[in-house]
Design a protein around this nucleic acid. Structure first.
Length: 938
RNA sequence: GCCUCGAUGGCGGAAUAGGUAGACGCGCUGGAUUCAAAAUCCAGUUCUUUCGGGAGUGUGGGUUCGAUUCCCACUCGAGGUACCA
């Protein structure tokens, strides 16, 4: 009876599907456990062996938790809106929904072959109207909310309106647009409805605002930063300019502090937390106002070092700063305008790449130092960014490297305000251990004291206030794309109106072309049926727009991260059509217990989803404000590319070992042509491409042809992609699962080399053989021996420890050791082999089901209890002590474990090998750690 | 530049409270079985050696009876980030 994985795996995959073995109920006496994977984008290329790595790990964990008595939810779905499908549509005219559906089908087939314990009844697809209905709904919730800094949470806009009606906006502390005019309750009452709506828009958590985008006139579209290479579009190399557009934004900045604080209570990888912390970029400092000499104007600056204010010798504004044109003197006008113009032409990327060049222009105007009253020059320089802080800095050249370089370059003053510090070569930017000098009342103070004192003074004199600033920007939420969620928004007199929940979803309209319109409108501008009828409450033809009852709908769509920001909660109750999920479901499942996915989402998906969760928490929709207790980043699996070497100028290939001094050109060969010994299947290579049909091959003496190997990213173009389907076909899903784990630690990146899989494959065959006697499946009911029990319990303990530490690679080794030992012991006993099948099940579920079934069980092994570890089986009476001399192990000695230190020392010192090692010397010291080691020093 | 992670045989990796470095697997070498091959099984496989031993976890220091493990400095590699006032 052979181990026939093809038959076994097909049989159990069918069984699981038919019996819905992994369907999780929303009610259970068991404790809940929610295991989540980052759902995939279904690309046309299908899965390669790198993709399932995290899914296998989470599946092992989910299956283990089921054995431990948990009600486990392990769902899967598709992040099915996205650019590739849209680009394919532009090129071929195929509707993205059609290609996406086909890709999803391929993915599902591939995933099914690997034997995951997914609860497919909970599948979600972000591009499914029944799903994005709720993405639209959350958008509306955000629109109807404002952030009250006093209660420190999001509240309904109605509470804001009540305040406006009672006392105007002066007392309101809100996260809102800058520069909102102060109005009284009386003013509010007198405002027109339109004026009121315009004001409210400045407070809403999602709002319209003018934002700068990378506009590419050549392509008629907006580009993401990573679509721009060297200042031109990646596709086609067209010019890109900065352009302001009215777009939806999300007020994530309102949550900056809470997003930061929340990191303290979740068990996520430190590097990931660090990058979110850095991204949020909290800095403490002060806002200080500088009056402009001779103008009724002031420059506000944010500074983290208000304690160095006496070191200010000039100011620098961003070239885009609104005051620039106002304060520039006639003499400087031309120079300033030229500089401003030159800057606007440089893309942000160019400005960033060019760190070395120092440039700037004097405006001719002066600011008045708020403490000394001295006149300081006002410059503009492109090292100051309009988008951070106030777009202006107070320059303290002695304390800031960039200010120092700028001052040096333009010959500006560099006053020293640090006690006993030499600043003739470089600025001094350290805070600790430096005392302030030449600064009036700050003299002699250290950083901390000076900060306190100066902020107190600044506030007392009314020239500013202490402030915490964040690097985090509000997130632009509009995309000029077709294949994304449409907004549930129409425009009345240019003001956005939300569509009522009962009429959702607003379904993506059909268009002729997926490109932007000729007049530069987003692709939805091509739709002819895209207007909202407020009487019929449905989408109607654009021809009917009368701006009285029928209005134009929003033409932008939502970004990729919209659909992924709440999908984990929707899994709890995915078919609910009345609510995003029932209260009952969310109160049962609460949050994600384990989330596995790639670290590339650190500051995108993983930050935005935390933001939405906090918002939903504020609104009482979800019970917890952090949705994932524990998160693990899986590492990348890289490919091991194969190279053949062609002699330059000839159609002749030379085996790697014979290259010598020959001038050769390395060429990627498909890794499927190469065996485990790095030998090329020459015929397969010849047949690969016509140009190689007649190629000559110089082989090694034994007739083999060796290739070179190199680790690179797995990619089609490098011909190193390995398809999991092929592996499942050749070795089976259980081998694939074991091998992916066996490669190395989950969180590290590691290279894939298919040849290694034979190790886990023969392990499975050996495991199978344990249950076979004389070619037939059979186990005995004999009592187990001490050694057999020891192997079993050692394995139980190690595997449980490994799973707790997400160290799945070492579990596989442990299984191998167990099977090797049981084979050597010729163990064929049910009491050992039955629990063994359960322990292996999370890793190799198909073979485990088959063995369990053949042992006479009628239910799935996935429901079986995990064997209980009994430590008494591991108790030892003897220990083979390593005897070290000066820390180096020299020989071993077998001793009973109950000996005292003195007894051990006496035996060891009397040993002949000890005498040989010491060669007559007297040991200075003998260290004995009972049960561990003996070390003789001397 | 900054932040983070990493570096152990020919290769992937193990050593989970500072205590036998190289578990387990691949590959390789030799042998058994076979007409032969596949498959399977057995033995060996860090380097070096005068076969006693000696050296050895990126480099250089330190702490310790003892360091892959802790501390300091550095080199190289991977990922992220970008003039953040």
């Amino acid at each position: 009876m052979e181990y026939n994985f093809r038959e076994i795996e097909a049989k159990w995959q069918q069984y699981w599907a038919e019996n819905q073995t992994f369907k999780a109920e929303n009610k259970s006496d068991k404790p809940k456990f929610f295991v989540l994977d980052m759902f995939p984008y279904p690309s046309g290329a299908g899965l390669h062996v790198g993709h399932p790595l995290g899914y296998i790990a989470s599946d092992i964990y989910a299956r283990y938790k089921r054995h431990k008595g948990f009600n486990v939810m392990h769902p899967q779905g598709y992040d099915s809106f996205g650019l590739p499908a849209e680009q394919y549509a532009i090129q071929t005219g195929q509707h993205p929904a059609v290609t996406t559906a086909a890709n999803v089908k391929t993915y599902r087939k591939q995933l099914d072959k690997i034997g995951f314990s997914f609860d497919w009844s909970r599948e979600v697809r972000t591009s499914d109207p029944n799903y994005y209905k709720w993405t639209q709904w959350i958008f509306i919730q955000l629109f109807n909310s404002w952030y009250n800094k006093t209660s420190d949470k999001a509240e309904d806009v109605s509470t804001l309106v009540s305040i406006f009606e009672a006392e105007g906006n002066e007392t309101v502390k809100a996260a809102c647009d800058d520069e909102i005019e102060v109005f009284s309750a009386e003013d509010w009452k007198n405002y027109s409805e339109e004026e009121k709506q315009n004001i409210l828009l400045k407070y809403r958590l999602t709002f319209l605002s003018e934002t700068e985008v990378n506009w590419c006139p050549g392509l008629g579209t907006v580009l993401a930063n990573d679509e721009i290479v060297n200042g031109v579009s990646e596709r086609g190399g067209h010019a890109v300019v900065r352009k302001k557009m009215m777009q939806w934004s999300m007020r994530i900045t309102a949550y900056a502090q809470r997003l930061l604080d929340g990191l303290g209570k979740i068990d996520w990888p430190q590097p990931l937390k660090d990058s979110q912390t850095y991204w949020i970029g909290r800095s403490e400092g002060a806002m200080v106002s500088f009056n402009v000499d001779g103008f009724d104007a002031k420059i506000d600056v944010f500074t983290t070092r208000p304690d160095t204010v006496y070191g200010v010798s000039f100011m620098t504004l961003a070239p885009e700063h609104e005051l620039v044109s106002k304060i520039t003197t006639a003499e400087q006008k031309e120079a300033v305008e030229t500089y401003v113009k030159a800057t606007s032409k440089r893309s942000e990327l160019e400005r960033m790449a060019d760190v070395k060049t120092i440039s700037g222009v004097f405006t001719g105007a002066y600011a008045l130092h708020p403490f000394t009253g001295e006149k300081v020059q006002i410059w503009i320089g492109d090292y100051v960014l309009a988008s951070y802080g106030t777009g202006a800095v107070m320059a303290v050249p002695c304390g800031d490297e960039r200010d120092y370089a700028f001052a040096n370059h333009f010959g500006l003053d560099i006053p020293n305000i640090f006690e006993g510090i030499d600043i003739s070569e470089e600025a001094c930017s350290v805070k600790e251990g430096v005392k302030i000098a030449n600064s009036d009342f700050l003299n002699g103070l250290t950083y901390k004291k000076a900060m306190k004192t100066i902020i107190y003074e600044i506030e007392k004199r009314g020239i500013g206030y202490g402030k915490i600033n964040y690097r985090l920007r509000d997130a632009v939420f509009s995309r000029q794309r077709y294949w994304g969620e449409p907004f549930p928004v129409y425009y009345k007199n240019g003001l956005p109106q939300m569509i009522d929940k009962e009429y959702l979803p607003i379904v993506l309209p059909e268009v002729e072309k997926y490109l932007p319109t000729e007049d530069g409108k987003p692709p939805l501008g091509n739709a002819t049926v895209w207007a909202w009828d407020v009487v019929k409450n449905e989408v109607v033809s654009n021809d009917e727009i009368n701006n009285e009852t029928i209005f134009p709908l929003e033409l932008n769509t939502m970004p990729g991260w919209a659909g992924s920001s709440q999908y984990f909660n929707r899994y709890m109750d995915p078919q609910n059509n009345e609510d995003i999920f029932s209260e009952e479901a969310v109160n049962y499942w609460q949050d994600v217990d384990l989330y596995i996915g790639g670290s590339e989402h650190a500051t995108g998906h993983l930050l935005y989803s935390r933001f939405w969760q906090k918002f939903m928490f504020d609104k009482g929709i979800v019970p917890v404000d952090e949705y994932a207790k524990k998160l693990i980043n899986q590492g990348m699996i890289t490919g091991t590319s194969a190279f053949v070497y062609r002699i330059e100028g000839e159609n002749k290939f030379v085996s790697k070992g014979l290259i010598g001094d020959l001038k050769v050109q390395p060429i990627h060969a498909d890794v499927s042509f190469v065996n485990g010994s790095d030998e090329l299947d020459i015929d397969a290579f010849k047949n690969w491409r016509a140009e190689y049909n007649d190629a000559e091959f110089i082989t090694e003496e034994d007739g083999t042809f060796k290739v070179g190997r190199e680790v690179e990213k797995m990619s089609k173009s490098k011909y190193n992609v390995v398809n999991p389907d092929q592996i499942c076909e050749e070795y089976g899903a259980d081998s694939l699962r074991l091998f992916e784990m066996f490669l190395g630690p989950l969180e590290q990146s590691k290279p894939w080399k298919t040849s290694g899989i034979s190790g886990v494959y023969s392990f499975l065959k050996k495991l199978w053989k344990l249950y076979i006697v004389n070619g037939e499946f059979s186990v005995t009911d004999e009592a187990p021996t001490k050694d057999e029990l020891k192997t079993l319990h050692k394995t139980i303990k190690k595997v449980e420890d490994d799973i707790a530490n997400f160290s799945f690679n070492t579990s596989v080794s442990t299984f191998m050791i167990a099977v090797n030992e049981l084979t050597a012991l010729k163990c064929n006993k049910r009491t050992i082999l039955e629990p063994l099948a359960v322990i292996i099940e999370p890793y190799a579920p198909h073979i485990a089901e088959e063995l369990w079934n053949k042992l006479g069980n009628t239910t799935s092994v996935s429901c079986a209890d995990f064997p209980i570890f009994e430590p008494e089986h591991l108790v030892e009476s003897e220990k083979e002590y390593p005897v070290s001399f000066n820390g180096k192990m020299r020989f071993k000695i077998l001793l009973p474990l109950d000996l005292s230190k003195q007894e051990i020392e006496d035996i060891v010192m009397a040993h002949e090998k000890t005498a040989a090692q010491l060669q007559g010397r007297t040991p200075k010291k003998v260290i004995i750690v009972p049960g561990k080691i003996i070390n003789i020093v001397g």
